[in-house]
Structures are given as C-alpha cells and as structure tokens.
Nucleic acid binder design. Structure first.
Lengths: 162, 162
DNA sequence: ATTCTTGCAAAGCCTTTGCAACTGC
DNA sequence: GCAGTTGCAAAGGCTTTGCAAGAAT
C-alpha cells in the first residue's frame, strides 16, 4: 500500500480478539483465524478471497474455503478489513490502521493506486449534509489506464508505425 | 431519476440501431431488443437484470433471461446504459441523455439519490492528471441512511422510550 | 459441558454459453 | 441464404450453508 499508516495502539490480532469477545454472543478465536490474520496483515495489499486461499495453501497451511470466507466476513465486521467492489471483483484491504482513501484501478495491469483528497471529503460532507443523509462510508473507484501501461501502449504504437 | 436530462438528438432506439449497424460486423436489431429498449427508457430508474425480467414478463412479453442479459451488455457497449456495482448488486441506469453523477444509497430502503458535484469532478481531474492516469470513468457510491429512514428511525426510538 | 467453529460437500445466486432453430438484412 | 439472434438448459464463478465432528472457554 502506498499511503502512510495511521498509528494504532493494538496489533490487528488483539483488536480482532477484543472484537470477538465483546460480541453479545462471544465468539471464539481459533488457530485458523490467527493464521489468517497474520497472513493478511503481514503481506497483502489488495487481495480477493481466492488469492488469500492460494497464499495460505502455498504456505503449506490447510484452511478450508468456507473458513476463509467466514473469517473474512468477521474481519470486515470487526473493522479490520474493508471490502470493496472493483468492477466485478470483490477485494479486501486493510481498514484498521489505514486512512480513508480512494482508488484508481488500471484496466490493463490491474494495479490499484490509492489517493486521498480533502476536497472530495469536503464535497461529500456538504452533499450528505444538504440531503440529511447519514453517511456511513463510501466507495470511489476511478477506472482507466495507469501511467506505465500508457507509456507501454504508446511505445507499441510507435513501433507499429515502423 | 432526479437530475435534469440532457437534450439529445436521437431516440434511444435509433441510437442503438445506429450503434448496431456501425459495428465492424454489423449486428441486428430484433423485436426483443426493441421491446427491451422501450421498457428500459419508458419507465425505469435504476434496475437490475432481474427487475427488468420481471417487468417484461409482467407485461405479458416473453423474452428469455439469456436475451435480456445479452441485450443489456449491448446497451452498455452502445453507451445507452451504464452498469454500476452497488454493494453486491449490479444495477443499470440510463447513460444516454443523462449527465455524469454520483450516488447515495440508503441501506434501509434501497433508495438511490443522485447528485452532481463540480468539486469532485475537479478533484478527480487533478488527481488523475498528477498521476498521469488516463481515466475512462468512475463510480462513487455513498452508503448510509436517507433522511426519511432517519426520521422513521428517530420516531420509533422515541416510541420505544414510552 | 457447552457452544462456537471447522471442513466437507451440496446448494444458491447470478451470469454466461453451446447448440439447434429461427430471423433480420 | 448467410450471418447474427433467440431460447433452452446446462455449465460457470463465486459465495453461502447444513451438518457432523472437533475445539475453545
């Protein structure tokens, strides 16, 4: 990820633990969940369920698809992950210890570029207020082609002309 | 829909016809497609594939799911419809003759409120330029609770206290 | 002990597709 | 008549779920 992290007082694992135990019906913290939290917060940028499954299986661990889906949902509820829809793909990103931001997605290479914009925040603030709309969050995804892919395309075009 | 329409010189049907016949491999304009275009541009706000199917079947017409999905894709390619992902739902909205805008979605009643914002446009313009990102479009969905649902909630809360 | 979680396989949901019959051009 | 379209039913992705066995508190 590319934005500066926000300082947080607890490890993701502890934050998750706390969330689980503070539920009306306390939930349990299992080995599988620990492994998943470690994998997710050690390495990943944006990832989807399948990538996480591959990653975990690649590391020799065996955690079932079902458990991964179930744990991802809990992590979202716990505020540790954010789920975003990018085109038709569902990807996850760190929420805990990471500031609110927007996305640009390259349609060629799939890269996601994050950015923050005060004026967008302000504009949203103003519009929701005006409409007495109680906002709980938003998703902004800009589609297009990133600088590198653009250069590559232009280079290729030049070659094609020879 | 709530924003003023933009004046257009052709009917959606004609614009679609034109699109179809101008393809490298010219495509055909069929009865089913005509019916769908009429239904879509006569009445709908935001709708998903299933709602359109129900609507069309409700009107006594019989058009298969497959054809509806295929036609929706063509309409998107033709620039008549825009496809947007709202949470996990895929909905369509008029693109032709309708200005660029953003969305607020009420998580209680499902209502979509549209709005335009110059400062958001400007901010996006600036950020993409800065990153040499060639933007082709964007999706901005604000989640939350609309004014009415909020009022309803507050009213209920007051009642609960009695 | 009790209650929640896991893994499996099955089911769900939405969307796409292969194919034979059909139809616009 | 040729090439593209339709409808059907089947297949595809991805995600969720019922259930019996296993684990956390």
């Amino acid at each position: 990820m590319s934005l500066p992290a926000v300082p947080v007082s607890q490890s993701p694992e502890n934050k998750f633990r706390e969330y689980l135990s503070s539920r009306p019906k306390p939930q349990r913290f299992t080995d599988q969940q620990r492994v998943l939290v470690q994998h997710i917060f050690a390495q990943h940028e944006h990832f989807d369920a399948d990538q996480l499954i591959l990653d975990v299986h690649g590391a020799g661990l065996n955690i079932s698809r079902a458990t991964i889906y179930r744990t991802l949902s809990k992590l979202v509820d716990a505020g540790l992950l954010r789920r975003i829809e990018v085109g038709t793909r569902t990807v996850y990103e760190h929420d805990y210890g990471y500031p609110q931001h927007e996305h640009m997605v390259c349609e060629r290479c799939g890269k996601m570029i994050e950015f923050q914009s005060e004026s967008i925040q302000a504009a949203l603030q103003q519009v929701t207020e005006q409409n007495q709309f109680l906002a709980s969050g938003h998703t902004l995804v800009v589609r297009g082609v990133c600088a590198e892919c653009n250069r590559a395309r232009n280079a290729k075009r030049r070659l094609d002309l020879i």
